[in-house]
């Protein structure tokens, strides 16, 4: 565990907490893509199945459980408890166009052709693009609430910090995993446009609004 990895995990944790608190406090999930949240639940489920097969550390186990619970908790709030506030008219990204290529790619490019490895690889590929329905929703409505912007910033920063972790590990431990690295680069690049708007607008106290 190095500092980039730890900060990455904390940023990820912060993101899911911001999202849950936003929905809970405002009693509304307006502006949040339920489709992205479904994809994230699929990502954590596919990746953390190894909870039942291998024990790594207390930290590892606790974080996995937190991400799973937070993810399904978010789905519960969006699709059951605060269902009436879900903005489904603007949440129209076709997720099968993301899921199917990820399934095919995971079957073709993986470390080992076994069920758990393919599911792990699928989760890595799917995570890299899971935010697209959310970014599509923001572009469709042309704006995002500040709290939604903070959520997106923390979530985007998390994988960016993992990239620094992998650079560090390449030099310090001679370790690298191309599947995770390439997917992590794709994932971080997808946020670049948003990062630019966040830094130039939201941090200056303005609402995130896209140019017309």
């Amino acid at each position: 565990m190095n500092i980039f990895r730890l900060l990455g995990d904390l940023s990820h944790l912060l993101a899911v907490i911001i999202l849950l608190l936003k929905i809970w406090k405002t009693r509304s999930c307006a502006g949040i893509s339920g489709r992205s949240q479904i994809l994230f639940a699929a990502v954590y489920t596919a990746r953390y199945l190894d909870l039942v097969t291998s024990y790594i550390s207390a930290y590892n186990t606790v974080m996995k459980i937190v991400f799973l619970v937070a993810s399904y908790g978010t789905l519960y709030l969006m699709f059951l408890k605060f269902k009436a506030t879900y903005d489904h008219n603007h949440d129209t990204f076709r997720i099968e166009f993301l899921v199917l290529p990820c399934v095919i790619l995971a079957l073709l490019i993986n470390h080992d052709f076994s069920a758990l490895e393919i599911l792990w690889t699928f989760s890595i590929y799917l995570e890299s693009v899971a935010i697209l329905p959310q970014l599509f929703m923001v572009s469709k409505t042309g704006e995002a609430e500040s709290i939604t912007s903070h959520y997106l910033f923390a979530l985007g920063t998390y994988r960016g910090l993992y990239l620094f972790n992998w650079i560090y590990r390449y030099y310090a431990e001679d370790h690298y995993d191309l599947i995770a690295i390439i997917a992590g680069i794709v994932q971080t690049v997808l946020y670049c446009d948003f990062f630019y708007l966040y830094i130039t607008k939201v941090l200056k106290g303005k609402k995130l609004q896209l140019p017309a």
Binding site: H12, H175, Y176, D177, I179
Partner: peptide
Amino acid sequence: SESERDKDEL
């Protein structure tokens, strides 16, 4: 070493 996944990463 090359391309082995680390089961500790989240």
